[in-house]
Every structure is written in C-alpha cells, then in structure tokens.
C-alpha cells in the first residue's frame, strides 16, 4: 500500500527538476510534500502519476513497478490526483464532471448511459460530501474557484482512489474553505485513504500531516513528523536562505 520512488530523476533542458529523489510515503497517513518554489514537487507528482516519463529511476506503488505506466492505468490502480491549477471540465455540468471518473469495465458497459442509477447516486454522494450538490446541473466553468476545487476533489474521489495526491489544495482558496478541505482530508484519511499533499500553507501542512517530506532542488532534504520538521535547520535554510 505504499507509494515510493527510487532515484527518480527528470531534467528539462539541462535543468534538473528531480535529482535522484528517493522517497517513501507512509500508507494510511496524511503525507505532505513541501519545499520552495521550483524544488520539483509538481514534477514529482507528474512522474509518479505517469503524466511525465522520468529520465531515470523507478516508481513503485503497492509493491508494483509503475514507472512509465500510462496515467489512466495508474489512476485505475488506485492513485488519484488533483492539479495545481484546479482543472475541471468547464463545459460539462458538475454531475457529469464527477461521472467521467466512474469506472466501467467492458466495451458494452461503456456504451451504456453514464447516468445509471448507482453511478449518479455515488456522484451525488460525493458532491453532497463536498457541499456542492445543489450545483449538480451547473456548468463547471461558471462555478467559483473554490467550488471548482471541491468539484475536482469530488471527481477524483469518484474514481475510488486508495491514495490521493493533492497539488496545492489550499491555493487561492478562502480561509473558511481551507478549513473545510482540511476537515475533508481528515475524514477521508480516517476512512482509510492515504494522502500526499503538496502545499505552501504551512499552518495547514503542520496541522494536517502525519509525515512531512521536504524537497529542495529536486531531492528530499529532510523528513519526519511536523514537530521535527519545524525545527530542522536544513528546512529553515532551504526556505529562508540562511
């Protein structure tokens, strides 16, 4: 049930975004991935979820090597993600946005209506859990930023992931909504989902996470519980430049 990388490297035009990053996340916990801008966090997410093929190194998930596996297979293996700049299907309704993530097996099943009773029920359930079920017929592109963030999360959860990667869930979101998102993460974690969260809001990171990995220049420089990370000199150095 673990997500781990070994010596993961990726360069863009000679600049190393990831530099032999070896990381192991804790299953069943809320993991945070922090670090200064440009330290490779989003590239790390993209490599782990198959969106980008790493130059070298391996990604393992649930004991299997998933390096170079197509993103949709990784998603179906139980790893869901949100994007840094929240991405929803702007010209679909909120309900359809969530229904896209429903699993279908055979080709025949894929020719059935997406609005089958059990799929719609589950999709509505996730929208209700996010508190945006009153907007199910609304076009996603017309929703507010915060609502879109919640909608994106509802979609990811509809795909029934065991591990959820959140890229800046609190980015550009008002404080009340940050609390709501934090509560949701705690609840879902209590229900058994593993989280890996990239976030710049340190109050949120410190209050939410069980285990923190700190990135600098494409590799982890420290890891541990919040209490340890808060006082780690290397972390302070990386953030404050002292």
């Amino acid at each position: 049930m673990t997500l781990a990388t070994v010596e993961l490297s990726k360069s863009f035009g000679g600049v190393a975004a990831l530099d032999a990053a070896t990381v192991t996340f804790r299953p069943g916990q809320v993991n945070a991935l922090i670090g200064p801008n440009g330290s490779g966090k989003t590239t790390f997410f993209n490599c782990v979820t198959g969106m980008i093929r790493p130059d070298s190194g391996r990604v393992a998930y649930q004991g299997k090597d998933i390096t170079g596996t197509a993103p949709h297979r990784i998603a179906r293996a139980g790893m869901g993600r949100t994007f840094q700049l929240c991405r929803v299907f702007g010209r679909m309704t909120a309900l359809d946005n969530v229904l896209v993530a429903a699993r279908s097996g055979s080709l025949v099943e894929r020719l059935r209506s997406p609005r089958s009773r059990d799929h719609v029920e589950r999709a509505r359930g996730w929208l209700a859990r996010m508190g945006i079920d009153h907007l199910e017929h609304a076009e996603a592109g017309a929703m507010s930023w915060g609502q879109q963030k919640l909608l994106e999360l509802a979609g990811v959860l509809m795909s029934d992931p065991e591990t959820v990667l959140l890229d800046e869930p609190a980015g550009g979101v008002n404080p009340a909504l940050i609390d709501r998102i934090a509560d949701l993460v705690r609840e879902l974690n209590a229900e058994g989902k593993t989280f890996v969260i990239v976030e710049h809001n340190m109050d949120l990171v410190m209050s939410l996470s069980d285990h923190i990995v700190v990135f600098d220049r494409g590799r982890p420089i420290a890891e541990g519980p919040p209490s340890v990370i808060r006082s780690d000199e290397r972390v302070l150095g990386a953030y404050l430049g002292v």
């Binding site: 969106m51 949709h72 179906r76 869901g80 929803v88 299907f89 699993r103």
Partner: peptide, 11 residues
C-alpha cells in the same frame, strides 16, 4: 475539454 485531466481520472 481537458485531455490530461480525463486521463488522470482513468479514461
């Protein structure tokens, strides 16, 4: 609408 997003959701 968004091909990468669709792929990330398992399509």
């Amino acid at each position: 609408e968004d091909e990468d997003k669709a792929e990330a959701l398992g399509t």
